[in-house]
Structures are given as structure tokens and as C-alpha cells.
């Protein structure tokens, strides 16, 4: 199963990176009108059909992957370093005021449903991809803090930490060189699972018009556009929706595989 996940993810990355070369109608990725072929059902030229202005759905999906992946990667890049660092610091200083301060703030962020806060933020700010990423990031870091906090507060009781303290190693050394390396596998596993979820949330935001803005082809935006023409012109929203499913599933399978692999390595 995890191999299927890996292959899916690699395929999506490939399609996204080489979208202009792979897509049969690269021009359709932006504002383009071809009313002659509008709302064409799946056929040989347009395997997934066209939308109401005649753009090739398949080509747009390939470009849509780009936005999805950028969303996933950027959000994680913004989220993981601070989330992990805060978790390490709080975990290592377990029981002190620093621990309490960090973890209570984390709890406050965790208490707000992520999609709701992202919606609120995006509707206040200008709705676009960049702000959607900021909003999702703001919601996502506490999960890493929680995860790493749990690991670090156990690891700090290991005798290798006591040994390093007895030697006189700096706190930075203990946190980043002794404790962090032992947290890497669960962090990686969570990251690969999270890419899928971030993309899903990003698509949700796009769906309600707060993410990728038309005419750019966000997967969520495309589903929303097509929703009006359901069920007669089903292909306009069903294929982008399926694409989302495939992306999320692919990253989840990969994450499960990574988790099993790390577990086997440790056992």
C-alpha cells in the first residue's frame, strides 16, 4: 500500500512540475475562452471534458496540482520549524513556567477549529493563495508542538540527557543534538500525512472562494465552479474532486508507510 502511496505522490509531483509540457492544453490553465468546445463531455481530445468556457479539465487539474503542492510545502515549511522548536523547549523544560506558558498558548490555538479560523482570517484579509497559506499555518503549528512536547518530555528523562548535562553541554546542544534526532521519525511521518490534509483544507478554502482565485485552476476552485452545473455536466466538478481524493490518499498512504518503516527500524 505504501508503495502505491509513494508512486502516486511521485506521479503528482512529476505532473505538477512538468505541467506545461505534460498538459495537452497548457493555455487553458488561465483565462481562456473557447465557446465552441464549452461543456464538452469527456472525449478523445478532452479526456475529462471541458468546463463552461471550454477549457480542458485534465490540463487544469495538472496545473491545479501545482497550487496544491505549493500550498502543502509552504505551509509545512512555515509550520514545522517553530512548532517543533517550541515543543522541544517546552518538553525539555517540563514543569517550569516556560513549559506552562508555551503549552497553554498552544492549547488556545488548538481549541479553535482550524477551518473556521482560516475562513475568518481569509475573509478579513484579501482572499488569495498567500493569505490562505498564512491562515492555515497559523492553525497548524500547535499540532507539531504537541507531538514534539510529548516526545521531548519523555526523552529528557533518558540517561543520555543526564549524561550530557553532567558533562556540561549547552542547553541548545541537548535540545537540538540529543533530543531532536530522536523525534525525527514521528515528525517526518506526521509531515507526510499532513501534506494531504493541508491540501484538503486549501482546497476547501478555494471551494468557498477564499483560496486560489479564478481564473487560476485551484482544485477546490474548479470543484466550486462546476458545482452549479451538477448533475448534468458532472465532469466539471467530479474530476477535480477525484484529483483531490487521489492527492490526499497518496500522501496518507505514504505517511502510513513511513510510520511502519520507522517502527520496524526501531523494533
Amino acid at each position: 500500500m505504501s508503495i502505491i502511496g509513494l508512486v502516486t505522490v511521485l506521479l503528482i509531483v512529476f505532473l505538477a512540475v512538468f505541467a506545461p509540457l505534460v498538459a495537452t492544453h497548457p493555455k487553458h490553465a488561465s483565462a481562456f475562452v473557447d465557446f465552441a468546445n464549452a461543456s464538452s463531455p469527456p472525449c478523445r481530445i478532452y479526456p475529462f471534458g471541458t468546463d463552461v468556457v471550454g477549457r480542458d479539465i485534465l490540463s487544469r487539474i495538472f496545473f491545479g496540482f501545482r497550487f496544491s503542492l505549493v500550498m502543502g510545502v509552504v505551509v509545512l515549511a512555515l509550520v514545522v520549524p517553530p512548532g517543533v522548536t517550541l515543543g522541544l523547549v517546552a518538553g525539555y523544560n517540563q514543569g517550569t513556567w516556560l513549559d506552562t506558558a508555551i503549552m497553554r498558548i498552544t492549547d488556545i490555538f488548538l481549541a479553535v477549529p482550524p477551518l473556521v479560523l482560516a475562513l475568518a482570517m481569509c475573509s478579513v484579509l484579501t482572499p488569495n493563495l498567500f493569505n490562505a497559506m498564512i491562515a492555515v499555518s497559523l492553525m497548524w503549528w500547535p499540532w507539531y508542538t504537541r507531538l514534539v512536547y510529548g516526545l521531548a518530555s519523555t526523552l529528557r528523562n533518558e540517561f543520555f540527557v543526564s549524561s550530557a548535562e553532567a558533562i556540561g553541554a549547552s542547553k541548545a546542544h541537548i535540545i537540538f543534538r540529543e533530543i531532536l534526532p530522536n523525534c525525527i521519525s514521528p515528525i517526518f511521518t506526521k509531515m507526510s500525512l499532513d501534506v494531504g490534509w493541508v491540501i484538503l483544507i486549501g482546497s476547501s478554502l478555494s471551494f468557498v472562494g477564499l483560496g486560489v482565485q479564478p481564473p487560476r485552476p485551484g482544485l477546490g476552485t474548479m470543484v466550486a465552479d462546476g458545482a452549479r452545473y451538477l448533475p448534468d455536466q458532472w465532469w466539471i466538478s467530479v474530476f477535480p474532486a477525484l484529483a483531490i481524493v487521489v492527492v490526499v490518499l497518496g500522501f496518507n498512504l505514504l505517511g502510513d508507510g513511513l510510520r511502519d518503516m520507522f517502527a520496524a527500524e526501531e523494533g
Binding site: 533518558e158 543520555f160 549524561s163 553532567a166 534526532p181 530522536n182
Partner: peptide, 17 residues
């Protein structure tokens, strides 16, 4: 000047180093 050797070397040596 003062060092220690713990009981369980499995825990006193960092497995990632």
C-alpha cells in the same frame, strides 16, 4: 571533575549519535 556511569547503557547512550 565529577562524572557518572549509569546502570543501563541502552538509555545512557543516545541511539541517534
Amino acid at each position: 571533575e565529577i562524572q557518572i556511569v549509569f546502570q543501563d547503557p541502552g538509555s545512557s547512550l543516545n541511539p541517534r549519535r
